[in-house]
Amino acid sequence: MENINFKVYTSISTLPENWNEVAASNHFLQTPYLQVLENSAPTNMECFYIGIFENDKLVGTLLSQYLDLNKLESFGERDSCLKTHIRNFIFKNFASHVLFIGNNMISGQNAYALSKEIEHKCLSKLLIDCSNALIIYFKNKGIKIHIVSFKDFYKQNATLFKKNYFNNLYEFNAQPNMIFNLNENWSSKEDYVAAFTKKYRDQYKRAHKKYNGIIEKELSLDDVIFHENRINELYHYVAKNAPFNTFFLAENHFSTFKKQCGSRFRIFGHFLNDKLVGFHTLLLNEDVLETYFLGYDDEIQKNNMLYLNMLYHMTEFGIENHFKKIIFGRTAIEIKSSIGAEPVYMSGFILHTNSFVNKFIGKIFQSLEPNLEWNQRHPFK
Rank of each mutant, 00 (worst) to 15 (best):
Y9I: 06
T10V: 15
L15Q: 02
P16T: 03
A24Q: 10
S25H: 09
S25T: 08
P32T: 05
L34S: 03
Q35I: 07
L37F: 09
S40P: 03
E46C: 09
E46Y: 08
C47W: 07
V59L: 00
V59Y: 04
T61A: 06
L62F: 14
Q65N: 13
Q65A: 10
D68P: 12
D68S: 15
L72G: 04
F75D: 03
E77I: 07
L82I: 13
I101D: 01
N104D: 08
N104C: 11
L114R: 03
L114E: 00
L123V: 06
K125W: 07
L126V: 03
L127Y: 05
I136L: 10
F138V: 05
K139L: 11
N140H: 13
I145S: 11
I145A: 07
N157C: 10
N157G: 09
F161L: 06
N164L: 01
N181T: 15
N183V: 12
N185E: 15
D191M: 10
V193Y: 03
K199N: 15
Y200G: 10
R201F: 09
K205Q: 14
K205C: 15
N212P: 04
I214M: 05
D223I: 01
D223M: 03
F226T: 05
V238N: 01
V238T: 04
K240Q: 08
A242C: 13
N245F: 06
N252Q: 07
F254Y: 02
K258I: 04
K259L: 14
Q260I: 09
G262F: 12
G262R: 07
F268I: 11
H270F: 11
D274W: 00
L276I: 00
L282A: 02
L294P: 00
L308D: 08
Y312H: 05
M314E: 07
T315R: 00
E316M: 12
F323N: 00
R330W: 11
I333K: 05
E334Y: 12
I335G: 14
K336P: 07
V357K: 04
F365R: 11
N375G: 11
Q376L: 14
R377F: 13
